[in-house]
């Protein structure tokens, strides 16, 4: 049970680690790391789904009867590209957040936004 589903266990563990980091950490870079781990677990899930014991690459050759399914592998290539694009976009957003807030901690950013809101409200009252 444990050994037979080894890959699935890894997938679930990684998925939970990833999601936990996204939720629990306030650092924007760490959140992105968590997101990447989460996505990677899904890649492993797809890749191990297609593997058959003793199966080889799906190329016609003499004496080979068992092939692994190539489709999930191809699908996940696409998903990996999407993952890279997401991480790149996320990181560039973090760079610009750092430039304009001078912080990459969720709490500090939220605090600055709230302060800004409060000071505009006060200015209104005085006016």
């Amino acid at each position: 049970m444990l050994i037979g589903l080894f890959n699935d266990w890894i997938v679930v563990v990684l998925m939970m680690i990833g999601l936990y980091i996204v939720i629990a950490h306030g650092n924007l870079i760490k959140k992105l790391i968590g997101l990447t781990i989460f996505q990677t677990s899904v890649f492993i899930f797809y890749i191990s789904m297609a593997k058959i014991d003793g199966g080889t690459a799906p190329i016609l050759a003499d004496g080979i009867t068992q092939y692994s399914n190539p489709l999930p592998h191809v699908l996940i290539l696409t998903a990996i590209v999407v993952g890279i694009a997401t991480t790149a976009l996320g990181l560039s957003l973090v760079v610009r957040i750092k430039e304009s807030y001078n912080s990459i901690e969720e709490e500090e950013i939220q605090q600055q936004d709230n302060d800004e809101q409060l000071s505009t409200n006060k200015a209104e009252e005085n006016a």
Binding site: V22, L28, L35, T86, L93, I97, S100, Y101, D113
Partner: peptide
């Protein structure tokens, strides 16, 4: 920027 980042995290999940 902050709104976009939050959307990115939620959207990707």
């Amino acid at each position: 920027l902050w709104a976009s980042y939050q959307y990115l995290i939620m959207g990707t999940i």
